[in-house]
């Protein structure tokens, strides 16, 4: 028997890698926005622990994703160095780690905040690990359209942790990330389509072709731009947010048009890369302005 199957080769940093820290940072930021802009108050310590629970829950779902996807991760350049395909962490260790953190994060959030927030966190973990990872990802090119819901829940969980309810505002925050996810990931998928094809993952460029992917990116971005401005239309964000959302939305549309127009060679790859990078900046800007404008400044002024 392989020695690594008998003796763990893992270091603590490998378990941290299982939590997908970069994805977790976006989860933390959007959940923090939900917590801060929610009406009513919550003790800062309880807010911080709630945020930690949401982060750990998101990380746990990442560990479960890496456990299940180890076979296809090993085939793709972007993921081949992850702890399981690299042989540093065994699948059993990752599964146990993900399950323990899932249960702990949900229970502690229930005790610290309320059981609605805990239930939403549990559903998010289930949605990402089971509905997206085990079912949608290998089955349909719409995988990240539906699976994107998992990444959209954190601000709603943050809001629920403070208010104990789900409101129109938190649904709008959910919708922004939900609509943002497809063009964001498809821009990456256009660059990495060979990887996905090798692993047999039916991402849109692999299953339906690059032309259709470019068309879908443009269509989703045309929907995203007005949805991104919805907090301003609905009156729970101010003028600064409206201006940033409008400018960012126009930037997204321009980059989506560039992807649609530039279909060959280095120019096409560059357009996709720019869309992927700018989409992260766009989402970060929307939530940052909301956080400062409706959270921090609203409490000071």
């Amino acid at each position: 028997m392989n020695r690594s199957a008998l003796v763990s080769q893992a270091e603590p940093r490998d378990f941290i890698a299982l939590l997908k820290p970069r994805v977790m940072s976006l989860v933390v930021f959007t959940a923090l926005t939900g917590i801060v802009i929610a009406p009513g108050g919550v003790h800062p310590v309880l807010a911080a622990i709630s945020l930690l629970c949401i982060a750990v829950g998101a990380g746990a779902s990442g560990a479960l994703n890496m456990w299940y996807d180890a076979d296809i991760d090993a085939l793709m350049g972007r993921t081949a160095t992850r702890p399981i395909p690299a042989g540093r962490v065994t699948p059993g260790e990752a599964l146990a780690f993900g399950l323990v953190l899932s249960v702990l994060s949900v229970l502690v959030l229930g005790l610290v905040a309320n059981w609605l927030a805990a239930g939403l966190l549990a559903f998010t973990i289930f949605f990402y690990a089971v509905i997206y990872t085990m079912w949608l990802k290998r089955w349909t090119p719409q995988n990240i359209v539906i699976g994107g819901a998992a990444g959209a829940f954190p601000p709603m969980i943050g809001w629920a942790a403070v208010t104990g309810s789900v409101s129109l505002e938190s649904l709008v925050l959910f919708l922004i990330i939900f609509i943002w996810t497809p063009p964001h990931f498809w821009a990456l998928a256009l660059i990495k389509s060979e990887d996905y094809a090798r692993a047999g993952v039916p991402m849109l460029p692999v299953a339906c072709g690059e032309a259709e992917t470019r068309r879908q990116i443009l269509l989703y971005t045309l929907v995203l731009a007005p949805v991104g401005m919805a907090p301003w239309f609905l009156g729970f964000a101010g003028l600064t947010y409206g201006v940033v959302a409008a400018a960012g939305g126009l930037g997204m549309i321009w980059l989506a048009i560039e992807i649609y127009r530039r279909r060959e060679g280095a120019a096409a790859r560059k357009a996709s890369g720019r869309m992927f990078a700018f989409s992260i900046l766009y989402l970060f800007a929307l939530f940052a302005v909301l956080l400062v404008e409706q959270g921090i400044l609203a409490r000071i002024l």
Partner: peptide, 27 residues
């Protein structure tokens, strides 16, 4: 590596205890 893992688990458990203690004090 085993020692590093043990330390990490100990720190995580200690952190959990601190969280429960703080929450009890606050709530």
């Amino acid at each position: 590596r085993q020692r590093q893992r043990n330390i990490a688990i100990a720190l995580a458990l200690a952190g959990l205890c601190v969280i429960f203690w703080i929450v009890t004090m606050v709530k």
